[in-house]
Protein backbone atom coordinates (compact mmCIF):
# COMPACT_ATOMS: atom_id res chain seq x y z
CA UNK A 1 0.00 0.00 0.00
CA UNK A 2 1.14 3.49 -0.83
CA UNK A 3 2.28 5.68 2.09
CA UNK A 4 -0.05 8.49 3.06
CA UNK A 5 1.66 11.80 3.76
CA UNK A 6 -0.13 14.30 6.00
CA UNK A 7 0.76 17.97 6.27
CA UNK A 8 -0.65 19.42 9.50
CA UNK A 9 -1.06 23.01 10.65
CA UNK A 10 -1.85 24.20 14.20
CA UNK A 11 -2.33 27.80 15.40
CA UNK A 12 -5.07 27.65 18.03
CA UNK A 13 -3.19 29.46 20.77
CA UNK A 14 0.38 30.75 21.05
CA UNK A 15 2.25 28.11 19.06
CA UNK A 16 2.63 28.28 15.29
CA UNK A 17 3.23 24.67 14.31
CA UNK A 18 3.52 22.60 11.15
CA UNK A 19 4.26 18.88 10.95
CA UNK A 20 4.61 16.20 8.32
CA UNK A 21 3.56 12.62 9.10
CA UNK A 22 3.76 9.31 7.29
CA UNK A 23 0.80 6.97 7.64
CA UNK A 24 -0.56 8.93 10.58
CA UNK A 25 1.82 7.78 13.27
CA UNK A 26 5.33 8.39 12.01
CA UNK A 27 6.65 11.93 12.44
CA UNK A 28 8.77 13.16 9.53
CA UNK A 29 8.97 16.66 11.00
CA UNK A 30 7.35 18.54 13.85
CA UNK A 31 8.22 22.24 13.90
CA UNK A 32 6.86 24.35 16.76
CA UNK A 33 7.39 28.09 16.91
CA UNK A 34 6.40 29.08 20.43
CA UNK A 35 5.49 32.61 21.47
CA UNK A 36 5.74 32.05 25.23
CA UNK A 37 8.44 34.71 25.68
CA UNK A 38 6.34 37.26 23.83
CA UNK A 39 3.31 36.78 26.09
CA UNK A 40 5.21 36.60 29.39
CA UNK A 41 5.10 40.34 30.01
CA UNK A 42 1.31 40.29 29.71
CA UNK A 43 1.00 37.40 32.18
CA UNK A 44 -0.91 35.27 29.69
CA UNK A 45 -1.65 34.78 26.02
CA UNK A 46 -2.91 37.95 24.32
CA UNK A 47 -5.05 36.80 21.37
CA UNK A 48 -4.28 39.75 19.08
CA UNK A 49 -0.53 39.52 19.75
CA UNK A 50 -0.65 35.76 19.11
CA UNK A 51 -2.54 36.20 15.83
CA UNK A 52 -0.06 38.81 14.58
CA UNK A 53 2.83 36.47 15.30
CA UNK A 54 1.14 33.54 13.56
CA UNK A 55 0.74 35.41 10.28
CA UNK A 56 4.37 36.59 10.40
CA UNK A 57 5.75 33.12 10.98
CA UNK A 58 3.52 30.59 9.31
CA UNK A 59 5.31 30.34 5.96
CA UNK A 60 8.75 30.01 7.49
CA UNK A 61 7.47 27.31 9.86
CA UNK A 62 5.88 25.48 6.93
CA UNK A 63 9.06 25.64 4.90
CA UNK A 64 11.13 24.37 7.82
CA UNK A 65 8.75 21.44 8.30
CA UNK A 66 8.98 20.50 4.62
CA UNK A 67 12.76 20.77 4.57
CA UNK A 68 13.14 18.72 7.72
CA UNK A 69 10.80 16.05 6.35
CA UNK A 70 12.70 16.18 3.08
CA UNK A 71 9.57 16.41 0.98
CA UNK A 72 7.93 18.99 -1.27
CA UNK A 73 4.34 20.21 -1.14
CA UNK A 74 3.50 17.99 -4.11
CA UNK A 75 4.31 14.85 -2.11
CA UNK A 76 1.46 15.55 0.30
CA UNK A 77 -1.74 13.50 0.22
CA UNK A 78 -3.90 15.73 2.39
CA UNK A 79 -3.81 18.76 4.68
CA UNK A 80 -4.96 18.62 8.30
CA UNK A 81 -5.65 21.81 10.25
CA UNK A 82 -7.01 22.75 13.65
CA UNK A 83 -10.34 24.57 13.31
CA UNK A 84 -11.26 24.65 17.02
CA UNK A 85 -11.38 24.95 19.91
CA UNK A 86 -9.05 27.88 20.50
CA UNK A 87 -8.65 31.63 20.04
CA UNK A 88 -10.72 32.71 17.03
CA UNK A 89 -8.18 35.13 15.55
CA UNK A 90 -5.33 32.67 16.05
CA UNK A 91 -7.23 29.70 14.60
CA UNK A 92 -8.17 31.72 11.52
CA UNK A 93 -4.55 32.30 10.49
CA UNK A 94 -3.66 28.60 10.32
CA UNK A 95 -7.06 27.64 8.93
CA UNK A 96 -7.04 30.28 6.16
CA UNK A 97 -3.49 29.33 5.24
CA UNK A 98 -4.26 25.60 5.19
CA UNK A 99 -7.42 26.07 3.14
CA UNK A 100 -5.53 28.02 0.48
CA UNK A 101 -2.74 25.41 0.49
CA UNK A 102 -5.27 22.62 -0.03
CA UNK A 103 -7.03 24.56 -2.79
CA UNK A 104 -3.86 25.47 -4.66
CA UNK A 105 -2.40 21.97 -4.33
CA UNK A 106 -5.80 20.43 -5.12
CA UNK A 107 -5.55 18.13 -2.08
CA UNK A 108 -8.27 17.20 0.45
CA UNK A 109 -8.69 19.42 3.50
CA UNK A 110 -9.34 17.84 6.88
CA UNK A 111 -10.42 20.07 9.78
CA UNK A 112 -9.25 18.70 13.14
CA UNK A 113 -10.55 19.25 16.65
CA UNK A 114 -7.57 20.43 18.73
CA UNK A 115 -8.58 18.30 21.72
CA UNK A 116 -8.85 15.19 19.55
CA UNK A 117 -5.34 16.11 18.45
CA UNK A 118 -4.11 16.02 22.04
CA UNK A 119 -5.65 12.55 22.50
CA UNK A 120 -4.06 11.37 19.24
CA UNK A 121 -0.58 12.35 20.44
CA UNK A 122 -0.74 9.02 22.25
CA UNK A 123 -1.03 7.10 18.96
CA UNK A 124 2.23 8.60 17.78
CA UNK A 125 4.10 7.57 20.91
CA UNK A 126 2.43 4.20 21.52
CA UNK A 127 2.44 2.46 18.15
CA UNK A 128 0.10 -0.37 19.18
CA UNK A 129 -2.41 1.76 21.09
CA UNK A 130 -5.87 1.36 19.60
CA UNK A 131 -9.31 2.49 20.75
CA UNK A 132 -11.25 1.86 22.89
CA UNK A 133 -9.75 3.41 26.03
CA UNK A 134 -10.33 6.17 28.56
CA UNK A 135 -8.58 9.49 28.12
CA UNK A 136 -8.04 12.28 30.62
CA UNK A 137 -7.54 15.56 28.80
CA UNK A 138 -5.99 18.24 30.97
CA UNK A 139 -4.71 21.60 29.79
CA UNK A 140 -4.92 25.35 30.32
CA UNK A 141 -8.31 25.41 28.64
CA UNK A 142 -9.72 21.92 29.15
CA UNK A 143 -10.39 19.23 31.71
CA UNK A 144 -12.30 16.34 30.19
CA UNK A 145 -12.74 12.68 30.95
CA UNK A 146 -13.60 10.95 27.71
CA UNK A 147 -14.34 7.46 26.43
CA UNK A 148 -12.54 6.95 23.10
CA UNK A 149 -14.81 4.43 21.38
CA UNK A 150 -13.05 4.38 18.04
CA UNK A 151 -10.81 6.63 15.94
CA UNK A 152 -12.66 9.93 15.88
CA UNK A 153 -15.50 8.64 18.08
CA UNK A 154 -15.74 10.08 21.54
CA UNK A 155 -18.14 10.19 24.42
CA UNK A 156 -17.60 12.83 27.07
CA UNK A 157 -18.01 11.31 30.53
CA UNK A 158 -17.16 14.38 32.59
CA UNK A 159 -15.73 17.87 32.37
CA UNK A 160 -14.85 20.74 34.61
CA UNK A 161 -17.78 22.80 35.83
CA UNK A 162 -15.62 25.89 36.32
CA UNK A 163 -11.88 26.40 35.85
CA UNK A 164 -9.76 24.11 33.71
CA UNK A 165 -7.04 22.43 35.76
CA UNK A 166 -4.23 24.23 33.93
CA UNK A 167 -6.01 27.53 34.41
CA UNK A 168 -6.04 26.97 38.18
CA UNK A 169 -2.27 26.28 38.09
CA UNK A 170 -1.70 29.53 36.16
CA UNK A 171 -3.81 31.57 38.58
CA UNK A 172 -2.08 30.24 41.68
CA UNK A 173 1.33 30.80 40.11
CA UNK A 174 0.35 34.38 39.28
CA UNK A 175 -0.91 34.98 42.84
CA UNK A 176 2.52 33.93 44.14
CA UNK A 177 4.29 36.02 41.52
CA UNK A 178 5.95 32.96 39.99
CA UNK A 179 5.47 33.96 36.37
CA UNK A 180 3.86 32.44 33.33
CA UNK A 181 3.08 29.74 32.33
CA UNK A 182 2.31 28.56 35.85
CA UNK A 183 2.04 24.78 35.42
CA UNK A 184 5.68 23.88 34.76
CA UNK A 185 6.89 26.37 37.42
CA UNK A 186 4.62 24.89 40.08
CA UNK A 187 5.66 21.38 39.02
CA UNK A 188 9.33 22.29 39.43
CA UNK A 189 8.95 24.08 42.81
CA UNK A 190 6.66 21.36 44.16
CA UNK A 191 9.53 18.87 43.96
CA UNK A 192 11.22 20.71 46.85
CA UNK A 193 8.02 21.08 48.88
CA UNK A 194 5.94 18.98 51.24
CA UNK A 195 2.73 17.87 49.56
CA UNK A 196 1.09 17.22 52.93
CA UNK A 197 1.96 20.63 54.39
CA UNK A 198 -1.41 22.23 53.66
CA UNK A 199 -4.67 20.34 53.47
CA UNK A 200 -6.36 21.88 50.43
CA UNK A 201 -9.89 20.67 49.58
CA UNK A 202 -10.60 18.06 46.90
CA UNK A 203 -13.87 18.37 45.02
CA UNK A 204 -15.27 14.95 44.16
CA UNK A 205 -18.75 16.34 43.37
CA UNK A 206 -20.94 13.49 44.60
CA UNK A 207 -18.65 11.03 42.88
CA UNK A 208 -19.72 11.68 39.26
CA UNK A 209 -17.17 12.24 36.49
CA UNK A 210 -17.29 16.05 36.51
CA UNK A 211 -14.53 18.18 37.98
CA UNK A 212 -14.39 21.49 39.83
CA UNK A 213 -11.24 23.43 40.54
CA UNK A 214 -12.66 26.77 41.69
CA UNK A 215 -12.93 25.62 45.31
CA UNK A 216 -9.31 24.49 45.34
CA UNK A 217 -8.24 27.69 43.66
CA UNK A 218 -10.15 29.92 46.14
CA UNK A 219 -8.87 27.94 49.05
CA UNK A 220 -5.26 28.37 47.89
CA UNK A 221 -5.80 32.09 47.24
CA UNK A 222 -7.41 32.51 50.69
CA UNK A 223 -4.50 30.70 52.27
CA UNK A 224 -2.02 33.04 50.57
CA UNK A 225 -4.04 36.14 51.56
CA UNK A 226 -4.39 35.05 55.17
CA UNK A 227 -0.63 34.46 55.38
CA UNK A 228 0.06 37.90 53.93
CA UNK A 229 -2.39 39.59 56.33
CA UNK A 230 -0.76 37.95 59.32
CA UNK A 231 2.65 38.75 57.87
CA UNK A 232 3.61 35.10 58.07
CA UNK A 233 6.16 33.53 55.82
CA UNK A 234 4.79 31.62 52.82
CA UNK A 235 6.74 28.49 51.95
CA UNK A 236 6.15 28.67 48.21
CA UNK A 237 7.40 25.13 47.59
CA UNK A 238 4.94 23.70 50.14
CA UNK A 239 2.03 25.64 48.67
CA UNK A 240 2.97 24.39 45.19
CA UNK A 241 3.33 20.79 46.34
CA UNK A 242 0.12 20.76 48.38
CA UNK A 243 -1.92 22.53 45.71
CA UNK A 244 -0.62 20.24 42.99
CA UNK A 245 -1.26 17.16 45.11
CA UNK A 246 -4.89 18.17 45.67
CA UNK A 247 -5.39 18.74 41.93
CA UNK A 248 -3.72 15.54 40.69
CA UNK A 249 -5.38 13.48 43.41
CA UNK A 250 -8.85 14.31 42.05
CA UNK A 251 -7.79 13.98 38.41
CA UNK A 252 -6.17 10.58 38.93
CA UNK A 253 -8.90 9.07 41.09
CA UNK A 254 -11.68 10.16 38.72
CA UNK A 255 -9.87 8.74 35.71
CA UNK A 256 -9.27 5.41 37.46
CA UNK A 257 -12.88 5.30 38.60
CA UNK A 258 -14.07 5.88 35.01
CA UNK A 259 -11.83 3.13 33.63
CA UNK A 260 -13.00 0.64 36.26
CA UNK A 261 -16.68 1.43 35.97
CA UNK A 262 -16.63 1.44 32.16
CA UNK A 263 -14.48 -1.68 32.00
CA UNK A 264 -11.30 -0.36 30.36
CA UNK A 265 -7.72 -1.26 31.18
CA UNK A 266 -6.02 1.67 29.46
CA UNK A 267 -6.01 5.35 30.39
CA UNK A 268 -4.23 7.78 28.07
CA UNK A 269 -3.32 11.24 29.37
CA UNK A 270 -3.50 14.15 26.97
CA UNK A 271 -2.96 17.93 26.97
CA UNK A 272 -0.42 20.33 28.43
CA UNK A 273 -1.02 19.26 32.05
CA UNK A 274 -0.31 15.64 30.99
CA UNK A 275 3.34 16.69 31.23
CA UNK A 276 2.94 17.38 34.96
CA UNK A 277 5.26 14.96 36.76
CA UNK A 278 3.10 14.62 39.87
CA UNK A 279 0.06 13.70 37.76
CA UNK A 280 2.05 11.10 35.86
CA UNK A 281 3.40 9.57 39.08
CA UNK A 282 0.11 9.58 40.92
CA UNK A 283 -2.00 8.07 38.16
CA UNK A 284 0.68 5.50 37.27
CA UNK A 285 0.77 4.41 40.92
CA UNK A 286 -3.03 4.10 41.07
CA UNK A 287 -2.98 2.37 37.68
CA UNK A 288 -0.63 -0.32 39.01
CA UNK A 289 -2.90 -0.97 41.98
CA UNK A 290 -5.87 -1.40 39.66
CA UNK A 291 -4.24 -3.22 36.71
CA UNK A 292 -4.79 -0.28 34.43
CA UNK A 293 -2.14 0.61 31.89
CA UNK A 294 -1.33 4.34 31.96
CA UNK A 295 -0.09 5.94 28.76
CA UNK A 296 1.02 9.47 28.08
CA UNK A 297 2.79 11.25 25.24
CA UNK A 298 6.38 12.52 25.57
CA UNK A 299 6.72 16.14 26.72
CA UNK A 300 7.11 17.54 23.22
CA UNK A 301 3.78 16.03 22.17
CA UNK A 302 1.96 17.26 25.31
CA UNK A 303 2.40 20.92 24.39
CA UNK A 304 0.51 22.24 21.40
CA UNK A 305 2.02 20.80 18.22
CA UNK A 306 0.94 19.97 14.71
CA UNK A 307 2.05 16.29 14.72
CA UNK A 308 -0.89 15.40 16.96
CA UNK A 309 -3.23 17.33 14.63
CA UNK A 310 -1.79 15.40 11.69
CA UNK A 311 -2.38 12.07 13.44
CA UNK A 312 -6.02 12.90 14.25
CA UNK A 313 -6.40 14.30 10.72
CA UNK A 314 -5.01 11.10 9.19
CA UNK A 315 -7.71 8.98 10.84
CA UNK A 316 -10.38 11.48 9.74
CA UNK A 317 -8.98 11.35 6.21
CA UNK A 318 -8.91 7.56 5.88
CA UNK A 319 -12.45 7.47 7.30
CA UNK A 320 -13.62 9.92 4.63
CA UNK A 321 -14.21 12.87 6.94
CA UNK A 322 -13.04 15.82 4.84
CA UNK A 323 -14.11 19.46 4.63
CA UNK A 324 -14.74 21.95 1.84
CA UNK A 325 -13.51 25.52 1.39
CA UNK A 326 -16.26 27.00 3.55
CA UNK A 327 -14.78 25.49 6.73
CA UNK A 328 -14.75 28.15 9.45
CA UNK A 329 -13.02 28.36 12.82
CA UNK A 330 -15.15 27.15 15.74
CA UNK A 331 -13.58 28.64 18.88
CA UNK A 332 -15.71 26.57 21.29
CA UNK A 333 -15.75 23.31 19.31
CA UNK A 334 -16.56 20.36 21.58
CA UNK A 335 -14.79 17.03 21.38
CA UNK A 336 -16.70 14.66 19.10
CA UNK A 337 -18.59 17.53 17.36
CA UNK A 338 -18.22 17.96 13.63
Amino acid sequence: MKDIITLAVESSCDETAVAVLKNGREILSNVINTQIELHKKFGGVVPEVASRKHIENIDAVLEEALTEANITLNDIDHIAVTYGPGLAGALLVGLSHAKALAFTLNKPLVGVNHIEGHVSANYIEHKDLKPPFITLIVSGGHTHLVEVKDYGEYEILGRTRDDASGEAFDKIARAMGLGYPGGPIIDRLAKQGNKNAIDFPRAFLDDGYDFSFSGLKSSALNYLNAKKMKNEEIVVEDVCASFQEAAVDVLSKKAIKAAKEKGYDIIALAGGVASNSALREKITELGKENNIDIKYPPLILCTDNAAMIGCAGYYNFINGRIHDMSLNAVPNLKIGDR
Binding site: I58, V93, S96, H97, L101
Partner: peptide, 19 residues
Protein backbone atom coordinates in the same frame (compact mmCIF):
# COMPACT_ATOMS: atom_id res chain seq x y z
CA UNK B 1 -10.30 44.71 10.42
CA UNK B 2 -7.34 42.93 12.05
CA UNK B 3 -8.82 39.46 11.65
CA UNK B 4 -10.10 40.21 8.15
CA UNK B 5 -6.67 41.37 7.01
CA UNK B 6 -5.05 38.21 8.32
CA UNK B 7 -7.57 35.94 6.58
CA UNK B 8 -6.77 37.62 3.24
CA UNK B 9 -3.06 37.70 3.95
CA UNK B 10 -2.86 34.02 5.05
CA UNK B 11 -4.73 33.03 1.90
CA UNK B 12 -2.47 35.14 -0.33
CA UNK B 13 0.65 33.80 1.37
CA UNK B 14 -0.37 30.15 1.00
CA UNK B 15 -1.19 30.47 -2.72
CA UNK B 16 2.05 32.37 -3.27
CA UNK B 17 3.98 29.81 -1.22
CA UNK B 18 2.79 26.83 -3.26
CA UNK B 19 3.43 28.44 -6.64
Amino acid sequence: SFTGLRIGMATAKAIAHVN
